[in-house]
Amino acid sequence: MSRFAGREGPIRLGMVGGGQGAMIGAVHRTAARLDGGYELVAGALSSTPQKAQASGQEIGLQSDRIYDDFTQMAERESQRSDGIEAVAIVTPNHLHLPAAQAFLKRGIHVICDKPLTGTMADATEMQAAVKESDALFILTHTYAGYPLVREAAERVARGDLGDIRLVQVEYAQDWLSQKPDPDNKQASWRTDPARSGIGGAISDIGTHAWHLLCHITGLQPEALAADLQSFVPDRQLDDNAHVMLRFAGGARGTLWCSQVAAGQENNLRIRIFGTKAGLEWAQENPNRLILSPLGEPARLITTASPATGENARRLTRVPPGHPEGYFEAFANLYCEAEIAIRAHRTGAALPEGVQFPTLADGMSGMRFVQACVQSSNANSAWVTL
């Protein structure tokens, strides 16, 4: 039984990173409080002490729960009777491992932004840290939280599409089409190998596309051939990638991700074709899922409609015709994590249908990134996964 057994009320949450000017920190905080399941009570929000203090005060943390670094936070919070039960890690990639280690070894659950780490070596260490801890590890691949993504995965699993033959997934943005302003922190760390790791676009958004493909189709990857580019002069990491994919059973796929595709904002989309039907979903219009049975008119499935299954409807907050989006999808991951954390207190089994990205998904993403880099460096040679 967990030392947190017997606790009542919202889960006490801490945050590492996500201070002033950090977009994803605000997203995590909004998602965590959307359904009332968490209370943010502590934070080491910046590596700069002055900014950490200012950021904590800005969001209403008590002064004694604002920390200058995550090691100090992990030590002190683990000793408090009202200490945090879970921590959200929303730092640049190179800090995911040391921050997670600090909390996992103290039995504090970790909710970590993707990708898992910046390098495969760090991912291997993360795997060991999670294995050695009794705490849960949740990875926030946001798009798995959309109700119609859950619906798509269930339809594929029950055979509505037949045997999968082809998969096409893409994630196109344009925000890094030019050399960024040095003051743009979001751009600067993502294009810096020391903080981002071995991948640029392939790590930042390519892992999202990869996870979406694997999550919905359930296909087992066998090999890939990748062509990575850095179109912006003097950029050290890729900003565009084309990847061919082979899967067990003979299915084939392509993955394109780009952060230099002019006119594209956040265009994540997937198309899946089987022997019986095709399926299409796009993140910029997430409340529509298109099912195209072979030889029949296409069918439109909308969020919360009678055509959706029980699990998809469980993740939906409003009636049909009311659009849900990014914050709600992110909040669904936090809701699933909350159910898991409460079950963990007493050792209870998870209710049927509850799911969220885990360490295994993170390791899959890192193997994907490493294989893409390896393939591209070898003139797009096929690399076994």
Rank of each mutant, 00 (worst) to 15 (best):
S2H: 15
F4N: 15
E8V: 05
G9W: 01
G9E: 00
G18F: 07
G18V: 10
H28E: 07
H28N: 04
A31Q: 11
R33H: 14
L40D: 08
V41S: 04
P49I: 01
G56W: 00
Q72V: 09
M73Y: 02
E75P: 09
E77W: 04
S78K: 06
V87E: 05
I89C: 07
L95V: 06
L97P: 00
A99C: 12
Q127V: 02
V130G: 11
K131F: 06
K131T: 15
H141A: 10
Y143R: 11
A144C: 14
G145P: 05
R155E: 03
G159D: 00
D160Y: 03
D160N: 01
K179Y: 00
K179P: 05
P182I: 01
W189G: 08
G197N: 02
G200F: 12
A201I: 11
A209D: 03
L212Y: 01
C214F: 05
D227K: 15
L228T: 09
A241T: 08
H242D: 15
M244Y: 14
R246P: 03
L255D: 06
C257V: 12
C257F: 01
A261P: 00
E265D: 10
R269K: 10
K276P: 04
A277Q: 04
N285K: 11
G295R: 02
P297L: 03
P297F: 07
R299E: 14
V318I: 07
P319W: 13
Y326D: 01
F330G: 09
F330D: 05
A331N: 05
L333M: 06
Y334R: 11
E336W: 05
I341R: 10
R345M: 13
R345D: 14
A349N: 11
L350V: 03
P357E: 00
M363Y: 02
S364D: 13
M366G: 04
Q370M: 06
C372T: 04
Q374N: 06
S375A: 01
S376D: 02
S380R: 15
L385V: 13
